[in-house]
Write a protein that binds this DNA or RNA. Structure first.
Lengths: 239, 239
DNA sequence: CGTTGACTTGATTTCAGTCAATATCCGTGG
DNA sequence: CCACGGATATTGACTGAAATCAAGTCAACG
């Protein structure tokens, strides 16, 4: 029950409640979760640090409680590509850790983060005890694969501008914060970051955002994007 | 034991042998396989037809015994992208059918094909009886995801020429056929097909292949590619 | 302030897509 | 057997989207 090193501001019951809503632990009773948590370790990381690095043996699955991370892949030439953004109550590192290989990418924090870690071996044990855990993991994989396929298709067929629109809409889905100016994407978001999500360059991002700003679709600032006209942006993304 | 509609030229024992080597049925005894096959139906399809279409409910998992198929995805604008090629003793349709949604792509035969079909519901039953089946399915998903990630990275960072080189090398891995001229890619392979694998156009494919031919890397013909200088092609793919 | 990192903008280049014309191969049927 | 028609492929000319390169601006922060 006692999770090592979990900071006091996280209420135990709220935590259980939250966990029972994650895709990994969906359908688990409080008692089951208590048992699961026996194995969990808390991890706290500052902004701009790494939970794990590409190519290292995958020893842990993580559940993000607070903050945000991005999963990066690095090409041999050193170019970065953002594979996905992870927000609280999502798991990451699961593909690698469940199959027992190496992490295919690096997990970089974009804010201060609080997470739970479960070791590779413990997870397998737990899956034996709770078959539902394996089923849930499988469902997560399936969903992940679909998302990746969608983005692959996008990358193969759509021009940069539309890809950027899609990327912003996806971010808005998860990180929307209403303000009087519009929908603020609530995360540090440089032109460089955007270009890595979209498979382009920071220059092109800058140009497109400028053009959109004059058209009244967005307001931009240093590492900030505010969507001021959602419907027009959606129209742009589709056709 | 008796599989409906399986043509006589397929020997039962050879079939069992083959199946036990597939990633889905790895580790299964002959007796287990016999039981599994109770549920299997044979499907025979001509070249250039479809096992299933994108967007239809995923009712079956298929195991390809003979021939070859490609899994296509179609954009709303009608552009095709080849997600992967499937060769004998691989399974396809598994992601969708195991998760119970719709097929995310279409499975088109490139040759006459012989396959076994297992229904969605039967597979779930069998997974209960043989937990190893679920584990194997999971491993397949993991591998598939990795491959897709690799190709995503490639698409996001590499120029067309290198992507084509990679695509040909991947095909050579699975469909190599030694000839006196070099390594023949043993499948009907039009410029159009290549462009859909690489995310480009048939014109660009034609130009690149012509250039390569004058450099002595390949020999090309109508729907044929022969790799004559593998090491140079590999060098091109890497850097 | 001065330095630094994020951003913008213009000029230029390049890669690859588009369009159009032509060539080549292959099966089919007269 | 040859001619025709329909894929399939090649090639050239052109265009365009986006990358690259190069200044330069702006805001934050010690």
């Amino acid at each position: 029950m006692a999770i090592k090193a979990l900071p006091p501001h996280i209420d135990h019951h709220v935590l259980l409640q939250k966990l029972s809503e994650t895709s990994l632990f969906k359908g688990f009773s409080e008692a089951d979760l208590e048992q699961l948590l026996e194995y969990a370790q808390a991890r706290r990381l500052e902004s701009d640090t790494y939970f794990f690095h590409q190519g290292t043996p995958a020893q842990h699955v993580y559940i993000l409680l607070e903050g945000q991370i991005k999963v990066l892949q690095l090409t041999p030439e050193g170019q970065q590509v953002v594979m996905r953004m992870v927000d609280p109550i999502e798991i990451f590192g699961c593909v690698a850790a469940l199959s027992g290989g190496e992490y295919p990418g690096s997990a970089q924090t974009t804010k201060a983060c609080q997470a739970l870690a479960l070791s590779h071996t413990d997870i397998l044990k737990l899956m034996n005890r709770f078959p539902q855990l394996a089923i849930n993991a499988f469902q997560i994989m399936v969903k992940r694969t679909h998302e990746l396929q969608d983005r692959y298709l996008e990358l193969a067929t759509e021009p940069v501008e539309r890809r950027l629109a899609h990327a912003l809409l996806r971010l808005a889905d998860k990180n929307a914060k209403e303000t009087d100016e519009g929908i603020l994407l609530d995360l540090p978001l440089s032109r460089q970051d955007l270009s890595e999500m979209v498979g382009s360059t920071l220059y092109t991002m800058s140009r497109i955002l400028s053009a959109w700003e004059t058209k009244g679709l967005v307001k931009t600032g240093r590492e900030r994007v505010i969507i001021t006209n959602m419907s027009k942006l959606e129209a742009l993304a589709q056709d």
